[in-house]
Simulated scan of single mutants.
Amino acid sequence: MIPTVEQAHELHRQYAPSTAAYELIHTHCVIIATIGRELARRANARYRAAQVRGAAERDGADGGQGSGASSWQSGDSMDSAVPQRELDVDLVYLGGLLHDIGTYRILASDGAEGRPLAFDDRYIRHGIAGYELLKAEGVDEPIAQFARNHTGVGLTRQQVVAEHLNLPVDDYVPQSLEQELVMYADNYHSKHQPPIFVSEPTAAKRTARFGEENLRRWKTLTAKYGVPDLGPLARQYHMDIV
């Protein structure tokens, strides 16, 4: 089953244990979905422009006869940072809405009745918790994977072992461009209390704390998808950018 956007919102209402938890986690997911959608549209525009450039170069190489006798192939680009295909913008938005659904299941305190809202020490497992929740709801595997594979810039099996992470030993990395973009967008907003937007320099510094390989992945993602304009969203939600 592929949920509709309204069904995704309903899952948040269904699993949120309190208004405070819903407002924090659902709002975060809406923000990431919005950032992801805008970045996907921009990436698609760059992809289409690269396709036009590639076609012009082929025509120039074969004298305009359209023989196609060149090394250029569909999906290639003179700009290696351009995604290899167009992204499904609606799928990015849906994945953004659902990526943190598992966070409701790792709350130490749900914030009800004026209590502080806090996550427990299993936070690293919120992706798996969301994946299991979505699978139990009958959600298709590629959609459930938005929850499973969105932490940081992707967690590899080697990282899970080396860092003794509280996760089953496996790779937790995106399996599609859409999953990759939601993972990337997720770095630009934090459920810190109060919630904040995260600038690219700050996100890069946070990523670098986990090693040079993580920072290299981050730089690849910024080149591929660009940096979102957080100002309008920060003003809309009355949140700071750090």
Rank of each mutant, 00 (worst) to 15 (best):
S176L: 07
A112E: 12
G152F: 11
I106L: 02
Q159L: 08
I106H: 02
E113L: 10
G75I: 09
D110S: 03
V153S: 01
L98E: 02
D76C: 09
F119P: 00
L107S: 05
F146C: 05
E113R: 14
K135W: 03
A112R: 13
Q145F: 09
V82R: 00
Q145E: 14
L94F: 12
Y131A: 00
T103D: 02
V89P: 08
Y123H: 14
G154T: 06
E137C: 14
H99E: 03
G96K: 07
A162E: 15
I106P: 00
V153D: 00
G102E: 04
P142L: 04
L107V: 10
G96T: 10
D170K: 13
A144C: 08
Y123M: 14
Q175D: 04
Y93M: 10
V153P: 00
Q175L: 11
E86G: 04
D88H: 13
Y131N: 03
A118R: 15
G152Q: 08
T151F: 05
P116D: 09
Y172V: 08
Y123D: 00
G75D: 02
D88A: 13
K135Y: 01
S176K: 04
R105E: 09
I143T: 15
D100R: 03
R105K: 14
L165I: 09
D121C: 00
F119G: 04
N149P: 02
Y104D: 02
A147P: 06
K135Q: 15
G130Q: 06
T156N: 07
L107F: 05
G130A: 07
E180D: 11
D88W: 06
H150E: 00
G138W: 13
L167S: 08
L94C: 12
G102S: 05
E163F: 15
P174V: 04
R148L: 13
P174D: 00
I128H: 01
G75W: 01
Q158S: 13
D100Q: 02
L181H: 06
E132S: 06
P116R: 06
P168C: 08
L181N: 02
S109L: 03
V92S: 05
R148D: 01
Y93S: 12
H150N: 07
G96M: 11
I106F: 00
L98G: 10
E178W: 09
I124Y: 01
H99D: 09
L94R: 10
G138A: 10
V89Y: 02
P83Q: 10
P116V: 03
L134P: 12
L134D: 08
S77T: 11
D140G: 11
Q175E: 13
R125G: 00
D90V: 06
L107A: 09
H164Q: 13
T103I: 05
P168M: 12
R115K: 15
R148C: 03
G154E: 02
V139Y: 12
P174L: 03
V173Y: 06
A147E: 01
A108T: 06
Q179P: 11
A118E: 14
R122D: 09
Q84P: 03
L98Q: 08
L133I: 13
A144K: 11
I124K: 01
G130D: 05
P168A: 10
E86S: 11
Y93H: 15
T156Q: 10
M78L: 14
D76V: 01
D88K: 09
V160T: 14
V82Y: 00
E141C: 09
L165G: 07
T156V: 07
R148V: 04
G95E: 11
Y104V: 08
E163R: 15
K135L: 13
I143F: 04
E132L: 14
A129H: 06
L133D: 05
E113G: 04
I143M: 12
G152I: 06
